[in-house]
């Protein structure tokens, strides 16, 4: 019996399709929100940032809509096997996407503050990092719409790149702050923005794990690749730049 075969009860299929479509819509919106938020930062466009802040409510609404569709389907259909995995996965993925949306909103908020300050050099690194995460989110959604476990595994591994980029940006920002304490305020905002983008990558990784479970019924085994080493980094006041910092491995 191929997986794509329809249920005997056709309204069951309709409900499952609705749930699937909500996820696709949420994903598209979350991806777009990230792009727009970073654009607002790069172009120093506060009006655009405000728009991003307002748009986030729509993602939240979709999450609520999906939640009630899932609850209703579980109550009325008692799904099992791949159907059960589909609805549980949708529930998990929607909360990851909702978080991605929240981070985009936070970036937008911070960009409004940053726009009051002189232009920041680190913006280009943020831009590169955000492009990478956008790609990852997009690929994750493609993997979801086709239930493609290999693609999910690929995305899962790519989060390491994001973490590495974040680590290097962390160092860059510390350097600017040490060069001139007047940079501290803006750089701190940039650091939070970078962290937000890095967290989006983590949520995309979660989604990839969920997709793997959805398509195979098994958990994705093995330790998740990690490239974020900032928690072990110490910069002493008398060191002058990234080359002099000490890394403490615990």
């Amino acid at each position: 019996m191929p997986e794509t075969q329809d249920h005997i009860v056709s309204s069951f299929d309709k409900e499952l399709r609705t749930i699937h479509e909500i996820i696709i819509r949420m994903g598209g919106m979350a991806e777009n929100q990230l792009a727009e938020a970073v654009d607002a930062l790069v172009q120093r466009d506060s009006a655009k940032a405000e728009l991003v802040r307002a748009e986030d409510a729509k993602i939240d609404e979709l999450e609520e809509e999906l939640e009630s569709a899932v609850v209703q389907l579980i109550a009325l259909r008692q799904p099992v096997a791949n159907d059960l995995r589909a609805v549980i996965s949708a529930l998990k993925i929607s909360s990851d996407l909702e978080r991605i949306g929240d981070y985009a909103k936070n970036i937008a908020k911070r960009s409004i503050a940053i726009n009051q300050m002189p232009p920041q050099k680190s913006v280009t690194t943020i831009m590169r990092m955000s492009r990478l995460v956008q790609e990852i989110v997009k690929d994750t959604l493609d993997a979801f719409s086709t239930s493609d476990k290999d693609r999910a595994i690929d995305v899962w591994h790519r989060d390491e790149e994001v973490d590495e980029m974040y680590t290097s940006l962390f160092r860059e920002l510390l350097t600017y702050m040490m060069e001139d304490p007047r940079n501290i305020s803006a750089c701190t905002h940039m650091l939070f923005i970078a962290k937000n983008i890095e967290r989006m990558g983590d949520h995309a990784t979660n989604i990839a794990e969920t997709i793997y479970y959805l398509s195979t019924g098994e958990r994705l085994e093995g330790k998740r690749p990690k490239g974020d080493r900032t928690s072990f980094q110490v910069l002493t006041p008398d060191s002058n730049g990234p080359d002099n910092d000490r890394e403490i491995e615990i």
Binding site: M1, E3, Q5, D6, H7, I8, V9, F12, P79, V80, A81, N82, D83
Partner: peptide, 8 residues
């Protein structure tokens, strides 16, 4: 899968 999910 087809049977228990009602697709049979």
């Amino acid at each position: 899968q087809g049977y228990i999910t009602g697709r049979f």
